[in-house]
């Protein structure tokens, strides 16, 4: 089963849930798709090795042939090319690799080359096979890295995807195609508001989903009411606890210290299997 862990808002405990679930199960593949801020291995502590480099195609300009007409710069929707009266300057980090400049160039001055945009690391620790995607500094388009990470999925395993926060393209790319999505929220008006946005997106993707309420116990009932009225199952509640927060601050998954919680996460997984 492929299970993605997501949240509309950062800081709700997405990585906490992903990691605790991973250490509570057997035969796990954990994919950290939050390629801008890959934090899962702070908790898993596996020895990571780079296994792959991700590339994309960018134009290579033959300045002998180029007559500085400026057609490519005018066409580029991302302002990745500037043409002055003396020189053409290309800014590869802004390029989306759409291929448009090559089409509009009348001098046939554009060829293609590969540019490194990210890396994938792999490590194993206590039965968890962790993959970490990492976007290169200066790159702004994480999608190809996430896409490649997802090709490494071994469907015979319990696959857990730690998705990037927000509700934008990286979130969609990570969650797309999952068998189930767990949305992690906290019982505050902030948490609820961001949960509603995430719910809208996950519904559009037609991925079945449920909710984990983290830092529970403040007496705010609206998240529960919202889930009930929308028919969304709340599958786990993690109480607000100083002990859990302290363990988090040290980079320790709390269920590794508390037997009861390991069982809770096992049960969470079973209830997801039942729901499918």
């Amino acid at each position: 089963m492929i299970l993605s862990i997501a949240s509309g808002k950062g800081g709700t405990g997405k990585t906490t849930v992903a990691v605790n679930l991973a250490i509570s199960l057997e035969d796990v593949q954990l994919l950290d798709c939050d390629v801008e801020e890959p934090n899962a291995n702070i908790f898993v502590k596996a020895d990571l090795k780079r296994i792959e480099t991700i590339y994309r195609e960018v134009p290579d300009f033959d300045l002998e042939k180029c007559n500085l007409c400026g057609a490519c710069a005018d066409f580029c929707a991302y302002n990745a090319i500037a043409v002055t009266s003396k020189k053409l300057i290309f800014f590869p980090e802004l390029c989306h690799s759409c291929g448009g400049c090559g089409l509009v160039c009348r001098e046939n001055a554009i060829r293609w080359r590969r540019k490194e945009i990210g890396e994938i690391y792999r490590g194993c620790k206590d039965g968890i096979e962790i993959y970490q995607g990492k976007l290169k500094v200066g790159e702004s388009i994480p999608i190809p890295v996430i896409r490649r990470m997802k090709e490494l999925i071994d469907r015979s395993k319990n696959v857990i995807i730690d998705s990037p926060p927000g509700a934008g393209c990286p979130f969609i790319e990570s969650v797309k195609g999952s068998d189930f999505c767990l949305l992690v929220t906290e019982p505050t008006p902030f948490g609820l508001y961001d949960l509603k946005i995430a719910v809208e997106v996950v519904r559009k993707l037609k991925v079945p989903f449920g909710v984990v309420v983290n830092k529970d116990g403040g007496g705010y009932k609206e998240v529960d009411l919202f889930c009930r009225s929308e028919g969304i199952p709340i599958l786990l509640r993690i109480p607000h606890s100083e002990e859990i927060a302290r363990l988090y601050s040290l980079g320790v998954p709390f269920s590794s210290q508390k037997r009861r919680w390991k069982e809770e996460f096992e049960r969470l997984f079973e209830s997801i299997e039942d729901l499918r």
């Binding site: 066409f75 929707a77 759409c98 291929g99 448009g100 509009v104």
Partner: peptide
Amino acid sequence: KDECEGCGVCSYV
């Protein structure tokens, strides 16, 4: 729409 990045290549060709 979710996939389109607005590059304009389709319109050009």
